[in-house]
């Protein structure tokens, strides 16, 4: 089994490609289908975007930490920020007709459709999003 791995980046959306490449390299050799890999890549990018924009409010001096951990039958992803806390309940339903033309606010909705487990909660420095994807997952975009 692979070792746990960690990446720490500043709150800069331009670093998303680096996060994607980091996760893709680490997952190499794991028995995920191509669709499942896309689901993980999309969800990880959503979680990191969320941490940068909402958690750390774009403050580049604050960091985003990504930890990838192999678990029995899949992977666990933890993304944490250093912001003042983020309440997922405060996000307006993006599927309501009045919100359909909003340019943001769909990240958690998409993650919840693609990943097997999603948990958002306060953690030591800010907010943590924890995600699980199983090799046997039938959830897919």
């Amino acid at each position: 089994m692979k070792d746990e791995t960690k990446l720490i980046i500043p709150s800069d959306p331009a670093r998303l490609e680096e996060v994607d490449a980091f996760a893709e390299r680490w997952m190499d050799g794991m028995p995920f289908s191509e669709d499942q890999r896309y689901d993980i890549a999309i969800s990880l990018s959503e979680a990191v975007n969320n941490a940068i924009e909402h958690g750390n409010a774009g403050d580049a001096s604050k960091k985003v930490t990504i930890i990838l951990t192999p678990i029995d039958g899949g992977i666990h992803i933890k993304v944490s920020d250093e912001g003042g806390g983020f309440n997922p309940e405060s996000v307006a339903d993006p599927t309501e007709p009045a919100n359909l033309l909003s340019e943001s606010g769909r990240g958690l909705l998409i993650i919840s459709h693609l990943m097997d487990e999603v948990k958002v909660e306060p953690c030591k420095a800010g907010t943590c999003i924890e995600l699980v994807k199983r090799f046997s997952s039938s959830k897919a975009s």
Binding site: Y38, A41, I42, E46, L101, S104, R106, L109
Partner: peptide, 17 residues
């Protein structure tokens, strides 16, 4: 397109508007 996330969808909505 290999894949697109919600920010990508936001880009398209911004363009449409």
């Amino acid at each position: 397109v290999d894949w697109m996330n919600s920010s990508g969808l936001g880009i398209l909505i911004g363009g449409l508007t």
